[in-house]
C-alpha cells in the first residue's frame, strides 16, 4: 500500500463516471424493456461497483491478498446463488 498517491483528478473522473452511470441506469428504467430491467440494472451496477472497488478502494494498487479476499467473497457468492438456483430452476415438475 506504500506506492505513490493516486492523483485526485482520477477520483473526480471516476466520480463523474459513476454519476453518469447512475443517470443512465435510472434513465433506462423509463424504457420498455420487458423482463430485462433487472439484468440491465445489475450489469450497470457491476460496472459501477468495479469502478468503486478499483479506484476508491484502491484495489488496483492493492496486494494480491486483498484481491484474494475480494474474489473469494464473490466466488462463494456465486456458489451460494448458483447451487440454490439449481434447485429452484429445475423444480417445475411438482412445483406450484
Amino acid at each position: 500500500m506504500s506506492e505513490q498517491l493516486t492523483p485526485t483528478k482520477t477520483y473526480y473522473s471516476v466520480f463523474a463516471a459513476l454519476v453518469a452511470l447512475t443517470l443512465l441506469t435510472v434513465g433506462v428504467s423509463f424504457f420498455e424493456l420487458g423482463n430485462w430491467h433487472t439484468t440491465v440494472g445489475i450489469l450497470i451496477g457491476v460496472v459501477k461497483a468495479s469502478l468503486v472497488a478499483l479506484f476508491f478502494m484502491h484495489l488496483l494498487h492493492s496486494s494480491k491478498l486483498s484481491w484474494l479476499a475480494a474474489l473469494a467473497g464473490l466466488f462463494w457468492l456465486v456458489i451460494l446463488m448458483g447451487l440454490t438456483l439449481s434447485d429452484y430452476l429445475t423444480r417445475q415438475v411438482l412445483d406450484f
Partner: peptide, 16 residues
C-alpha cells in the same frame, strides 16, 4: 456504497 449500487436496480428499477 457498493451494496446500495446494487439495491438501486434490484429494488427500485425492477419494472418500467
Amino acid at each position: 456504497d457498493i451494496v446500495w449500487i446494487f439495491l438501486l436496480p434490484l429494488l427500485y428499477l425492477a419494472g418500467t
